Simulated scan of single mutants.
Amino acid sequence: MTIKLMALLAMAAATAAQAQEGKLVDYRCAQPPNIQVLFAVDGQHATLRLPGGRDVVLPARPAGSGFHYGNSRYSLRGKEDELRWTRGKGDPVECRAAIGESRDTQAAWRLKDTYWRLREVGGQPFLPASGQREPHLVLASKEQRMHGFAGCNRMLGGYEQEADSLRFAHVATTMMACVNGMDTETAFTHALERTARYRIDGDLLTLIDAEGATTAILQATALR
């Protein structure tokens, strides 16, 4: 049996297994992160898949129309291609199924030479104050250097990347004091120092530490 044939058989087996497991739907949300939901065939539960490899199984709840899955922390409500999901005491986030969007399109963003703006750090969404500049970073491919804005100060440093491994080195910032942004800056720089690998899902970059925990989530924008 050739390697190519073995690969095709493995792919077919994986597809069949997923079909038995349920329907996997990619959702694009008004606020990050984007999510995936695996709906069980029997409708008794749905698995919420978050960036960073976090899977949460949610049991079905009574719903007048459409669907409702949830537990004490997460809730999914929707109908057809539209979905609202809630985390903790946060406001519901509107999402829509990414119908017709190819995996190639979803993975089009490159790690390097992309403007990545901060969306979540330390498990908390980043919500800028009025007029606050957005924290971001760029991994420059030619210089093999990282530069960006940490929340109050400009930051720079080195990085090493191979396959899905990513480590930042000698992260430094300027020394200006700010009324807003210092807490974000501290959390952001600590997240970079802890990063051991990364994952790109669509336009979201998830930074992950050595234990597999998410340190930060950033969203892609064309380089400015």
Results as ranks from 00 to 15, higher is better:
53 G>N: 13
172 A>P: 02
16 A>H: 00
27 Y>M: 01
215 T>W: 05
156 L>T: 03
5 L>Y: 12
48 L>T: 09
28 R>Q: 13
197 R>K: 09
88 G>A: 06
105 T>R: 00
218 L>F: 11
108 A>K: 15
208 I>H: 09
219 Q>D: 09
52 G>L: 11
157 G>M: 00
52 G>Q: 05
3 I>K: 09
31 Q>N: 13
24 L>E: 10
9 L>H: 08
84 R>L: 15
98 A>M: 13
74 Y>R: 07
209 D>T: 08
39 F>T: 07
39 F>W: 00
150 A>G: 14
165 S>T: 14
67 F>T: 08
91 D>R: 10
129 A>K: 14
117 R>P: 01
37 V>N: 00
133 R>L: 14
126 F>R: 05
108 A>L: 11
109 W>I: 04
97 A>H: 02
180 N>S: 11
71 N>M: 13
93 V>W: 01
191 A>N: 04
113 D>V: 07
158 G>P: 04
211 E>W: 02
155 M>R: 07
25 V>G: 03
103 R>T: 15
212 G>I: 04
39 F>D: 06
192 L>F: 05
42 D>Y: 04
202 G>R: 01
174 T>G: 10
43 G>E: 01
36 Q>S: 10
62 P>W: 06
172 A>Y: 01
170 H>A: 15
223 L>R: 12
74 Y>L: 13
65 S>H: 03
62 P>A: 12
174 T>K: 06
191 A>Q: 05
164 D>G: 02
133 R>T: 12
91 D>T: 07
189 T>P: 03
194 R>P: 06
8 L>K: 09
193 E>P: 01
151 G>L: 04
150 A>F: 00
27 Y>Q: 03
108 A>W: 03
207 L>D: 06
38 L>N: 00
3 I>W: 03
21 E>G: 02
102 S>D: 01
15 T>P: 00
205 L>G: 05
160 E>A: 14
160 E>W: 09
68 H>R: 13
165 S>F: 09
131 G>K: 07
21 E>N: 02
53 G>R: 05
110 R>W: 08
220 A>N: 12
196 A>E: 10
159 Y>S: 03
197 R>T: 07
109 W>Q: 09
9 L>I: 05
198 Y>G: 02
221 T>W: 08
40 A>I: 02
128 P>E: 11
46 A>Q: 07
18 Q>W: 06
69 Y>W: 01
140 A>G: 08
173 T>G: 00
7 A>D: 07
160 E>M: 06
144 Q>R: 15
166 L>N: 01
120 E>P: 04
5 L>E: 14
158 G>F: 01
40 A>V: 04
187 A>V: 03
111 L>E: 10
150 A>S: 14
124 Q>E: 13
80 E>K: 08
4 K>T: 12
39 F>S: 08
152 C>S: 04
153 N>Q: 06
17 A>E: 10
87 R>E: 13
152 C>D: 07
32 P>F: 05
10 A>G: 09
181 G>D: 08
17 A>I: 03
152 C>G: 02
71 N>Q: 05
189 T>M: 13
62 P>N: 10
153 N>F: 08
223 L>T: 12
54 R>T: 12
186 T>Q: 14
79 K>N: 13
7 A>E: 14
102 S>C: 08
118 L>Q: 08
36 Q>D: 09
165 S>M: 06
